[in-house]
């Protein structure tokens, strides 16, 4: 069984190589984002610091946050949406394999491709241009890796869930637009959650989006109290389970509708 999923990941990886020319654009785009953020923060912070955050910290933060955003799987929304609306989903239902799982492993192939061809080069170039700090405490390194995995799973489930919702209600485009906006704001891409006002910080902490950028970056930078980490990882896991549960529920309803109404 495992063999078939890893095969899917492998194929998805190679599927990406068909669009190699995009790689340079992505790397360039990423470095631009980091560069712009570094410029802004240099202007704002100068040589000083704000809430204990100085310019070196911000460089690392924006690089990690940008890199994590490259491996998010919320664009799976378009895959599911297309499958459901064209009825091609029926072919996947006729395979002796679990479709949502298949999809996750498929997306993982894309992620691995992104990591190798976009994220790693971006990190190397940024490191060379602006310098970079690394975590030293092994405890944080382990927590960081777990948080990356949570970012994958949560972003996947959000995309998957939104596609299912759009099957009944709105246009996919509108929903995707909204989700992307929420991720941009609440994952701390523009502004780290450290600088949010108390009210907004509370909102951000109530939502799952912080796990899609801010949390991994904060853990990487060891900016989270060591005794809080377990609690945060636990919270992320709860989010993943909850989203999975709701997605599963909607998935069965969508399938039921398909098999009764015929799409």
């Amino acid at each position: 069984m495992m063999r078939s999923y890893s095969e899917i990941t492998k194929k998805a990886f190679f599927r990406n190589t068909a669009y190699r020319s995009e790689v340079w654009l992505r790397i360039f785009g990423n470095i631009s984002i980091v560069f712009i953020q570094v410029s802004i923060w240099t202007a704002l912070l100068g040589t000083g610091s704000l809430n204990g955050i100085n310019i070196e910290t911000m460089i690392t933060y924006s690089l990690i946050n940008t890199s994590v955003s490259m491996i998010l799987m919320n664009k799976v929304i378009y895959v599911v949406d297309d499958k459901l609306k064209t009825g091609n989903i029926t072919l996947d239902l006729l395979k002796p394999i679990n479709y949502p799982l298949l999809l996750f492993w498929d997306q993982l192939g894309n992620v691995i491709f992104q990591v190798i061809f976009t994220v790693v080069p971006t990190i190397l170039i940024t490191w060379f241009l602006f310098g970079l700090t690394f975590p030293t405490n092994p405890y944080f390194i382990v927590a960081f890796i777990i948080s990356l995995f949570l970012a994958l799973v949560i972003s996947f489930l959000i995309g998957y869930l939104v596609a299912l919702v759009s099957f009944w209600f709105l246009t996919t485009f509108a929903l995707d637009w909204m989700v992307t906006a929420l991720i941009t704001v609440f994952s701390g891409s523009f502004l780290p959650l450290w600088f949010f006002s108390d009210g907004w910080k509370f909102v951000a902490e109530m939502l799952p989006f912080q796990f899609l950028g801010f949390i991994p970056a904060a853990i990487y930078m060891e900016k989270i109290n060591i005794d809080e980490i377990v609690w945060i990882i636990g919270k992320g896991t709860m989010w993943a389970l909850m989203l999975w549960f709701v997605a599963q529920l909607l998935w069965w309803r969508a399938i039921r509708r398909l098999v009764i109404q015929g799409g």
Binding site: E7, K11, R15, A18, N88, T90, L91, L94, P96
Partner: peptide, 28 residues
Amino acid sequence: GIVFGQRSQLWWDLPVEDSFELHRRIYN
């Protein structure tokens, strides 16, 4: 086994043999 004249089970962007390879794994 199933074939729909109007739908495809093959992986659009990959060589044909890859779809066979994958099918082999999925059906063990």
